[in-house]
């Protein structure tokens, strides 16, 4: 289980995360929703070890996460960053294989690559193309594939539906459920609150760096405040 306690992160003088506490139990999908600039990505980058927290603790199975990003990856906490961030100068296949950088089991890597190609047949078709030539949706598939190649214990997904057509968005969420069914733990940050809350076991609402609400996905979906602020549902003025 991933446990974040009283996390404070600063960007220079800006207090980006304020006393954030979050729990991600094993085998569940936990989501954090919030508007642009609420601190979702900051939280993700901090968990991945790229940004440093000023105070607070991040523990995984009771042990605190290492300080540098590559050690966090080695511990099995893998971030699929916002806007995909594929290596445009590498082929699709090379991008996916980069996810297996730390693995030393060629057989397992081969098997996982087969599995990923079965999950995303389009990537198999495009495997020798440069990643920069993929469409946004295909790029998101490749980015998730790269994350999966690391055999993550916890997969951190930052805005996987950003900039995607509704069709690809559904595809991405379907994939997330498939990955969960394989036994993975997923921590998801999304602006598309509706979809995220629908699939989440547990959810947090982040507002200007603070956790303002938490509960099960269903509870938050039914919460009038959430509906008004994030789901576009208008309640009549009282």
């Amino acid at each position: 289980m991933l446990k974040v306690e009283n996390l404070n992160v600063y960007y220079g003088r800006i207090h980006a995360l304020k006393n954030v506490s979050i729990e991600v139990p094993k085998g569940q999908i936990v989501t954090v929703v919030g508007a642009n600039g609420a601190g979702k990505s900051t939280l993700m980058w901090t968990l991945a070890g790229v940004l440093k927290a000023k105070s607070g603790t991040i523990t995984y199975n009771g042990k605190s996460l290492p300080a540098s990003a590559h050690d966090v990856a080695a511990a099995g906490v893998i971030l699929v960053p916002e806007r995909r961030r594929l290596y445009a100068n590498l082929t699709v296949r090379e991008n996916i294989i980069m996810g297996a950088f730390l693995r030393k089991d060629p057989e397992g890597i081969k098997k996982d690559l087969e599995f990923i190609y079965s999950l995303f047949p389009i990537l198999k078709e495009r495997s020798n193309q440069y990643a920069g030539t993929l469409s946004g949706g295909e790029q998101q598939m490749a980015a998730i594939a790269r994350g999966l190649m690391s055999r993550p214990k916890i997969l951190l997904l930052d805005e996987p539906s950003l900039g995607l057509s509704p069709l690809y968005t559904s595809e991405v969420f379907k994939t997330i459920l498939q990955i969960k069914a394989q036994g993975a733990t997923i921590f998801l940050a999304e602006q598309n609150a509706h979809k995220a809350l629908e699939i989440a076991d547990r959810a947090y609402v982040l507002e200007t760096g603070r956790v303002v609400l938490s509960g099960s996905g269903k509870e938050l979906l039914a919460n009038p405040k959430v509906q008004e602020a994030y789901l576009g549902v208008r309640h009549k003025a009282i």
Binding site: A73, I78, P81, L90
Partner: peptide, 11 residues
């Protein structure tokens, strides 16, 4: 191309 992401991949 992207040093930060490479470190996310464990490099």
């Amino acid at each position: 191309y992207d040093m930060t992401v490479a470190s996310l991949n464990g490099v």
